[in-house]
Design a protein around this nucleic acid. Structure first.
Length: 518
RNA sequence: GAAUUGGUAGCUCAGUUGGUAGAGCAAUACACUUUUAAUGUAUGGGCCCAGGGUUCGAGUCCCUGCCAGUUCACCA
């Protein structure tokens, strides 16, 4: 009954493929075999190495690749009657293969060619082929097949993308299809795979950079009872056995600092953070931040380290520090420009607000036609001016330093500039990609700053932070002078892979669940 | 949350002032033993996102909803 019902929803092509599967079974062929398939090379290796050999076109080179065995998905077939050309796609690329009736079926029985290959195999099926490499008349390195094996029958037709000279035709571009069915997107759009490979290269380079310098990669809790270390709305959940509310982490900062208290000098974590907020081109509810904390350092040292790390990450990802982002060329070569927030505002708006009080800054907001909410304190006003007028103008990587104390409850006061903290953000392509401090380690002052946050909360600021008493207890034992930083890994990946949307650097971006009629 | 664009065959898309759906690719059948967006001939394939409304008649016009994209708001 259920099978009958579900069959009614199948398209003509899906029904035909199921029938082919039945036919294969009747011939005694298992379309989902269990045995290992002895792959001994891959498409790219063959093409790169065979091409170096000056073989005559249309002639086989008897010296090398005489016995290859590869596996992959059939992406296209050109049927010439008793001989076919087809394209196989494996993990690294594509290669053409040539399959001829009298080679597959040397005897009288032509079933394997005429029935199995020509009738029962489809584009999208995964097969293994054995044979030798040759160059066709038109000069394309190909595999002359002597034997093929069905490894997996595909029951759902793939979106067909044709290509010629690197240009794709009828490319699948529908974002909903691509994000919901990333597996199909990856099969059909090779550039998608490239993006994710680059992302991993970038992450590996960063990890290597940190490990080389003696940093320790650690794991800290994702489920937290106090969602600390940032100001954001958390996802809440509940622990049944303990019968307590729990939250998905919005940041891991306070845990990493506890480890610095514990005596580690340099810890880092690629932290998946969760924030229950809006989604757009640059925000996904779960996203990745690299945070690291280093004892006995300050934010000046951190700027040096940051630019070296990103220089290396860019090199490892693209082989150069320069990257095209849309129309703009961005160069990650160290060092980067450094400018204080007050100087930036002065440079861009002409207003010197460094000596002003809250009323003066509100006046500047009016002059600049920036909305200034009554609930906001001085720090938030300054941040608003910077965000509205300055942030977007920094295309090349630029350190903005020395933030107002009100916006930075976890940051050490500036060594020489009253009202400011030792903090920087790294701007790139008009967006923040990293945020760093000389960490506040005075437990009494930290308690006071938390209390100021509580007042802001009472004043109506719903972004203010919760107090974490255990974290204060840790600070009371003594945390050495420490510099810490957080990098928006997804955003850096977007820059280094020239992707416009965060969804294009996440395999499975958040989507509203599909309605299921079953 | 607001504005805006879109949802038609497995895929990419057409669809005139409203008259019950078209193309290319894919599929099926046939031909072709070096093609490459192969080619040629023929055939099948649609709850036009969903629900209301206007109308003799709606893929098309109106309303509501669903899903997605973009921009804005929100998001240290």
């Amino acid at each position: 009954m259920t099978k009958l019902m579900s069959t009614q929803h199948l398209s003509e092509q899906e029904i035909i493929r199921r029938e082919k599967l039945t036919e294969l079974n009747k011939l005694g062929i298992d379309a989902y075999p269990a045995a290992l398939y002895p792959v001994n090379t891959n498409s790219v290796f063959i093409k790169e190495n065979y091409a170096q050999h000056p073989a005559d076109k249309g002639v086989e080179n008897k010296d090398q690749f005489t016995d290859v065995c590869i596996a992959g998905r059939i992406m296209s077939v050109r049927d010439m009657g008793k001989a076919n050309f087809a394209v196989l796609q494996d993990a690294v690329g594509k290669i053409q293969f040539y399959i001829k009736q009298d080679d597959i079926c040397p005897g009288e029985d032509k079933t394997m060619y005429q029935t199995v290959w020509k009738k029962l195999i489809d584009i999208g099926d995964i097969i293994g082929i054995k044979g030798y490499v040759f160059t066709t008349k038109t000069g394309e390195t190909s595999i002359h097949v002597s034997e093929f094996t069905i490894l997996t029958k595909s029951l759902r037709p793939l979106p067909i993308v044709k290509e010629k000279d690197g240009e794709a035709f009828d490319e699948v571009t529908d974002p909903e299809f691509r994000y919901r069915q990333r597996y199909a997107d990856l099969i059909v759009n090779p550039s998608v795979k490239e993006t994710f490979i680059k992302r991993t290269k970038m992450v590996n380079a960063i990890r290597e950079f940190l490990n080389e310098r003696g940093a320790l990669e650690v794991d800290t809790p994702v489920l937290q009872s106090i969602p600390g270390g940032a100001a954001a709305r958390p996802f809440s959940t509940h622990h049944n056995a303990l019968d307590v509310p729990m939250y998905m982490r919005i940041a891991n900062e306070l845990y990493l600092k506890r480890l610095i208290v514990g005596g580690f000098e340099w810890v880092y974590e690629f932290s998946r953070n969760f924030r229950n907020e809006g989604m757009d081109r640059t925000h996904n509810p779960e996203f990745t931040v690299l945070e690291f904390y280093v004892a006995y350092k300050d934010y000046e040292w951190m700027m040096d380290t940051t630019e070296q790390m990103l220089d290396k990450a860019a090199m490892a990802t693209n082989g150069t520090t320069k990257v095209m982002v849309g129309e703009k060329e961005i160069d990650f070569k160290a060092p980067y420009k450094r400018i204080t927030m007050y100087d930036s505002i002065k440079e861009i708006t002409g207003f010197d607000i460094s000596e002003m009080d809250e009323a003066g800054i509100r006046h500047v907001c009016r002059e600049l036609k920036i909305h200034a909410d009554d609930k906001w304190g001085k720090g938030k006003l300054i941040d608003e001016i910077f965000g509205e007028k300055c942030e977007g103008t920094y295309i090349q990587p630029t350190f903005i330093t020395d933030y107002p104390v009100e916006m930075s409850p976890l940051t050490k006061k500036h060594r020489s500039k009253p009202g400011l903290v030792e903090r920087f953000e790294l701007m790139c392509n008009g967006k923040e990609i990293a945020n760093a401090y000389s960490e506040l380690n005075d437990p009494i002052e930290q308690r006071e700053r938390f209390e100021e946050q509580t007042k802001l909360m009472e004043r109506g600021d719903d972004e203010a932070m919760f107090i974490d008493h255990d974290f204060l207890r840790a600070l009371e034992y003594g945390m050495p002078p420490t510099s810490g930083i957080g990098f928006g890994i997804d955003r850096i990946a977007m820059l280094l892979t020239n992707q416009h949307s965060i969804q294009d650097v996440l395999f499975f971006p958040m989507m509203r669940p599909e309605k299921n009629d079953d």
